[in-house]
Design a protein around this nucleic acid. Structure first.
Length: 630
DNA sequence: TGCGGAAGGT
DNA sequence: ACCTTCCGCA
């Protein structure tokens, strides 16, 4: 199949195809939905609601019309659109919120938001509820078990928890946009509409901010600092450079090596990933997740919610943003790495591209994560979730993140090892798109890809990177080995997704290699060599130790929240927020961090965290929804 | 309303 | 692969 190369790392197709990108003509429905959700202009027709990732189609006909316009299918109607949405159930991209009309919920874990930076779920602003998606609890995310579909897919598609973070970041990076890529596109109706509203609305504010989020890759250091490594302490490591990497990159290898894929990536990964959740990823080793301080973690968490973050991004996403790339001036090492990875220069290239190209194009990155899980379906029924949850957590959603790229030498694949049946797969997605040019004007809210990377963003990104890097390695490495710790994992699949968060420990890391750069104070750049040189093992060990500590703390935190999901809905979002807090936090934390990195995120988080969220939200990029060509 | 099979298109 | 279209069932 797809696998291109052997190796392995493959993203789900849907995650990273270029076509999927928002801008592209081939935009996928879920991408489109996210785009609409992120735009205030459309909040009257579709908006985040309640639970994290939950949205309501307020005007089905209009949404269908917009979708039809985007796809040049004038005959589109809600009946058809909803059929398409139902297909997502099996893919686990979406679930239906039972009992609520026209209300669906994204399974962020799987999504690759990458592509969408915009996702912000909530802009909150306008929207009433706004808040969407963010999970406060971070972990909570679980979906409701309900869906049978969960089953799964095995494919790569879904599952990877860990990844999420990355995704987020990526998204940020990307910005969205299609336009960027296409250049042309974009605009169409949506834009039009948007324009109108915007003008009046003021949407500008937040969104713009959002853009900033993503920084280019470089930041890791910065990020790191921000949060302070303190916690971490780990000196070393850090990450590497890439920040991003959530994906994939290569894992292991050297750390430093790879630069991150995309800017986006950078962000994400790093930090935290929460854990590794996925079986695959998570390796035993990892268990620990990376460590960051608790505090740091918390921050992250707060900032975003984990869940959301989990999305994977698609590779392409990165591409778009040229800017993202790393700022750092030099980084020789990176370059090299970049090559491997695909990332290349800072500037221009977006990771994505490179990745694709380098790796081989088509598959671009192949990060393969794991094989698809089989079992889910069976389990679904059970829904059991809770138990699994923990386990799940472990494997969690996030785990996916680990993506790895294989870049260099070490290639680490993330494949599952055995494949057990478990499900967990890791996904990784990256995003890459090509970036067009570097410049986009920021201005636009909508389109600009460029905007995304504003300074602000950068900072944040940086943070992520720092941490992330380390983690990733672990994860990646581990992934291969790991079995799920929990047996439960199997079951959860569905839930997994949501759960993800919980496990803190692990760490997540999904990000592989890339990140690793070193960072420390000294030079940012990690040289590939350098980093690599150091034995990874050592590094891991160190981390591991730390992680373990953390884990211990965090671990239990996880809870499930299964029931909650469902219920939550009923209550409303609010509940969500509350729950998470307790023990969950810790767990979440990692996740969140990711989020932060990533970026965008959903909506507003809970009150406490809101601020972070908001920032994220702001960051959101813009995209154009419709397709001009039609 | 919502689900999901089936056929077909790209 | 990802819908789009159509349709029967609940």
């Amino acid at each position: 199949m797809k696998t291109p190369s052997d190796p392995g790392f493959a993203f789900p197709d849907w995650a990273y195809k270029p076509e999927s990108s928002p801008g592209s003509r081939q935009i996928q429905l879920w991408h489109f939905i996210l785009e609409l959700l992120r735009k205030e202009e459309y909040h009257e027709v579709i908006a985040w609601q309640g639970d994290y990732g939950e949205f309501v189609i307020k005007d089905p006909d209009e949404v269908a019309r917009l979708w039809g316009a985007r796809k040049c299918k004038p005959q589109m109607n809600y009946d058809k659109l909803s059929r398409a949405l139902r297909y997502y159930y099996n893919k686990r991209i979406l679930h239906k919120t039972k009992g609520k009309r026209f209300t669906y919920k994204f399974n962020f874990n799987k999504l690759v938001l990458v592509n969408y930076p915009f996702i912000d779920m909530g802009s909150g602003r306008g929207v009433p509820q706004s808040a969407p998606p963010v999970p406060s609890g971070g972990s909570h995310f679980r979906f409701p078990p309900s869906t049978p579909s969960d089953v799964l897919s095995s494919s790569e598609e879904l599952r990877s928890p860990g990844a999420m973070y990355s995704a987020v970041s990526r998204r940020m990076a990307r910005g969205s946009v299609s336009d960027c890529s296409d250049g042309t596109s974009t605009n169409s109706e949506l834009e039009e509409a948007g324009a109108e509203e915007r003008g009046g609305g003021g949407s500008g504010g937040p969104e713009r901010a959002y853009r900033g989020l993503l920084p280019p890759r470089l930041p890791h250091d910065s990020l790191f600092r921000l949060y302070g490594p303190a916690g971490l302490a780990r000196p070393t490591p850090r990450v590497h450079g890439d920040p991003l990497s959530p994906f994939p990159v290569s894992p292991l290898p050297g750390p430093g090596l790879l630069p991150p894929l995309s800017p986006a990536m950078s962000m994400t990964p790093t930090p935290h990933l929460p854990f590794t959740p996925s079986p695959s990823l998570a390796s035993p080793l990892m268990g620990s997740h990376f460590s960051f301080n608790a505090e740091d973690m918390n921050h992250y968490l707060q900032a975003h919610t984990q869940s959301v973050y989990n999305y994977h991004l698609s590779p392409r996403a990165f591409l778009p943003y040229p800017n993202i790339i790393v700022p750092q001036p030099h980084r020789p090492a990176l370059d090299k790495h970049a090559l491997l990875h695909g990332l290349s220069h800072p500037l221009g290239q977006s990771l994505g591209q490179s990745l694709g190209q380098s790796l081989g194009a088509a598959d671009e990155f192949k990060f393969k994560l794991q094989p698809p899980p089989l079992g889910r379906k069976h389990r679904e029924t059970g829904s059991t979730s809770s138990a699994s949850s923990s386990s799940a957590a472990a494997s969690g959603p996030f785990s996916g993140s680990s993506l790895n790229m294989s870049a260099g030498p070490p290639k680490i694949k993330v494949e599952q090892i055995s494949d057990m049946e478990s499900d967990e797969e890791v996904e990784v997605t990256d995003i890459s798109e090509e970036d067009e040019d570097m410049n986009h004007h920021d201005d636009d809210e909508e389109e600009d890809c460029g905007g995304i990377f504003t300074p602000l963003s950068r900072h944040r990104l940086l943070l992520h990177h720092g941490n992330g890097g380390v983690l990733r390695h672990h994860s990646s490495v581990r992934a291969s080995t790991l079995p799920h710790a929990n047996g439960a994992a199997e079951e959860d699949d569905d839930e997994d997704v949501f759960k993800t968060p919980a496990t803190p420990p692990a760490g997540v890391m999904p990000f592989p290699a890339l990140s690793l750069k070193a960072e420390p104070g000294s030079s940012a750049p990690v040289s590939p060599g350098g980093t690599r040189c150091i034995p990874l093992k050592l590094r891991f060990k160190r981390r591991w130790s730390e992680d373990q500590k953390t884990e211990a703390d965090g671990r239990e935190a996880e809870r499930d929240g299964e029931a909650e999901d469902k219920k939550v809905r009923a209550d409303g979002q609010e509940r969500l927020e509350e729950e998470p807090r307790g023990g969950a936090q810790e767990e979440l934390a990692p996740a969140r961090g990711a989020v932060i990195l990533g970026l965008s995120l959903p909506p507003p988080p809970p009150p406490t965290q809101r601020r972070a969220s908001s920032e994220l939200q702001r960051a959101t990029a813009q995209l154009s929804l419709e397709n001009p060509s039609c």
